[in-house]
């Protein structure tokens, strides 16, 4: 775990790369999450001050968007599409299988910190569903066997 002085120094470095940008808050939050894996609580007041907005406003923006995390995810993130086109080819069945095998419900992380399971609403892979994205890698036509293989490869 980083101490807060180190975190703040890195956040200030990120801020220096976004000076003069119109509507910079989302790019800044993305950059912070890319750096730390989540948006640390101590980062928000620093960002708010730099952008001349209130801490509440910065928190409001961060918490509005599904992408931004308040706490780190597991070492691996498995996202399964739950949208209609994937439902039409068995996404609900595949998701139920994944939840059972992992022993996790949506948004939960396994006790050993290995895997976080999340729903996602459309990856644009609607003609080759059910779709998934594992640590940024896209996977199409996911079935129970593919779920087992994907989960087996995560540790």
């Amino acid at each position: 775990m980083l101490d807060s002085a180190t975190t703040v120094a890195r956040v200030e470095d990120i801020l220096s790369h976004h000076q003069g940008m119109e509507g910079a808050l989302l790019p800044i939050l993305h950059a912070i999450q890319a750096e730390f894996g989540h948006v640390p609580q101590v980062a928000l007041p620093v960002v708010a001050k730099a952008l001349n907005i209130s801490g509440a406003e910065a928190h409001g923006v961060m918490s509005f968007y599904h992408d931004f995390r308040e706490a780190p995810a597991g070492r691996h993130v498995l996202k399964l599409c739950r949208a209609e086109a994937c439902q039409a080819v068995g996404a609900d069945r595949v998701a139920a299988h994944a939840r059972k095998v992992l022993g996790l419900d949506w948004h939960e992380t396994s006790k050993d910190g290995a895997v976080t399971l999340e729903p996602i609403f459309c990856l644009g892979l609607c003609a080759c569903g059910p779709a998934a994205i594992v640590d940024g890698k896209l996977v199409g036509r996911v079935d129970e066997a593919k779920i087992d293989a994907l989960i087996g490869a995560l540790s």
Binding site: E22, G23, A24, L25, L26, P27, L29, H30, L51, G60, V61, F64, Y65, H66, D67, F68, I120, F121
Partner: peptide
């Protein structure tokens, strides 16, 4: 290029504009 952050409603044009301005996508 600006990247969204996982909010479906930001496909609505006024919500998208708020998001682009760095606000909640309301």
């Amino acid at each position: 290029v600006r990247v969204g952050a996982g909010a479906y409603v930001c496909g609505e044009e006024t919500s998208l504009l708020n998001s682009l301005e760095g606000k909640r996508g309301v």
